[in-house]
Design a protein around this nucleic acid. Structure first.
Lengths: 178, 178, 178, 178
DNA sequence: CATGAATGAGTCTTCATTCAT
DNA sequence: AATGAATGAAGACTCATTCAT
């Protein structure tokens, strides 16, 4: 029952969801009181997997910049394999407009505590060109998230992983010489 | 009838749309055979406005880098004033999943012919640090689009225009010293 | 659309109701926001008809006792022809248990103002054997209502109208000699 | 499992019924093949209790009129304490419309054999003012049943027992002098 | 041409009943 | 025997679309 994030999900009939899960419709409602609740659970599970995937990858290296890079690569690789999560994130906005803040951004905000210190370290080491670590982190986040969304909207593009190297390079050094 | 992109729109009741436009429901169907057709028209109109807004801004400056920067600023400023367009772009994906490619990316692709030459110029002038102008352009696009989407998902953030300067600075020079 | 009380109604499918009325399901919902609202409207309409039927009959005679008797006869005759109303009254209790007070009794209460004065008159004329006109009225009400309900629960009984004469006779003079 | 008539019952969830009885849902179905069967059993049990209560009370006195009066009082007192039974009687009509005849009237019919002889006795003793003992009995039944139902539909009324005396008085002697 | 009342396919959700443990 | 998780038929309600006026 925990594999909903795996399939496309979309604006699916509850019947379809049940069929997909190989259970009766009533059984779905035994676990989730509402279609929305089930959706939220799927989205949350996806976010948890993403978080774990990224943090695991980052844990393997020491240097702050290398850590960020590893996290960035892992993030894009995750969405290569689980494009459904991006769909869920977009669906949440489309269907539950009323929600104050998207779950994706709740998670992003919560994870600042992990990544911001890395940029602070870089700053302390005099390696940061820009003044505000906050902004640098946001920009990396925007590049990562924007890439993942773009990838979904544009079926023909190259895989996210293939572009990760070059995206991070531009994040690191910019496009203009000097 | 041409102002649909102006309001929040979302997945509105056809009745609401008609009321909003101050006409009868039947009249809407005289102009658009389908709710989807009406939606597409709204989205297309929004994209045209965005394109014009950005190109007008870029036309005012000469230097290729300055042109890109002006375009970037104009793009974000546009979405500050017309957040509905981002919603439409996301809704298209959410509701019309079956569509091969999103209208946003059709426009992006079509506009490459305008922006890519600028990067090529920069490269020819030896000002480009990265080898592939294509990739540089894509990255700028991802930063711009990612920012606009993020801004929608995260109600509390600063305005897009306020961040445009710093985002472009990082795009230009990166976050790391040397 | 005003004839719902005419048919059996029961715990009908909304589809059945629509079919019965010869309209589409959506049309029903155009007039009544809820199945419950439609039910209430039917019940209310039935009560209004009952009231009018009874008051019209009573208006034709002058003597207070004759008036009461005419009303009693009219009441039972009405339910002979519109047994559906009793069903609605019972259904209201069965289905909308939570409701504070049944519509039937709201109407009864409201109509006290019409009938009680008749009993008071009888009392003033020294024709009333019992002390409390209130109680006499309630008893007549209970006989009338009880007969109508019993008639519904017991399909084989004689028609209400056929028994009206004798019921009122007992109400008037009791069963015991002296 | 025999106490269903005791609680409010209404159209309860089978889950609720099982919980209320302190057993598993499956166990309920071991005893009653159907929710309807269980409902019928509850109703029947209630009717048996009512019958016993009334007959016990009547057995204590000898005179036919006193016997009827005792039975009448007992009947109303029973419903003061067990209003749930009236609900069940009404629910049977509301929910199982198809049933030929209500259980309440099957019992009433069966009990005629007990009460009718009393009225016949009164008639034989020359104490009955009306000609048909049958009708007199029916009228008493209607007053009793009508009172009990009215009491349910009209939460604010006085208790049934409090009115029993006066109701029987009117049944006995009528409201009009001479 | 413009309208909006009518339509009915499509969906979420409930709950009596079953049956593997 | 007892349980309660699983089932899926049934039903209230929505809303894009049509068409008579």
């Amino acid at each position: 029952m925990g594999v909903f994030a795996a399939n496309g999900y979309r604006l699916a009939d509850c019947q379809d969801i049940a069929d997909q899960a190989g259970v009766g419709k009533g059984t779905v409602y035994r676990h989730f009181s509402t279609k929305e609740a089930l959706f939220s659970a799927s989205l949350r599970e996806g976010m948890e997997q993403l978080r774990e995937h990224v943090e695991t990858a980052a844990a393997r290296v020491e240097d702050p910049l290398a850590k960020l890079k590893a996290a960035f690569h892992a993030y894009l690789a995750f969405f290569d394999e689980t494009p459904a999560l991006i769909e869920l994130i977009l669906l949440e906005r489309a269907e539950f407009r009323s929600l104050r803040t998207s779950m994706y951004f709740s998670y992003s905000e919560a994870d600042r505590g992990i990544w911001l210190p890395l940029l602070q370290q870089l700053k302390d080491q005099g390696r940061l060109r820009v003044d505000e670590p906050d902004l640098a982190l946001d920009t990396l986040g925007v590049i990562a998230f924007g890439s993942a969304v773009s990838d979904r909207l544009n079926a023909d593009g190259p895989s996210l992983s293939d572009r990760a190297e070059q995206l991070f390079d531009i994040f690191q050094s910019g496009v203009i010489r000097d």
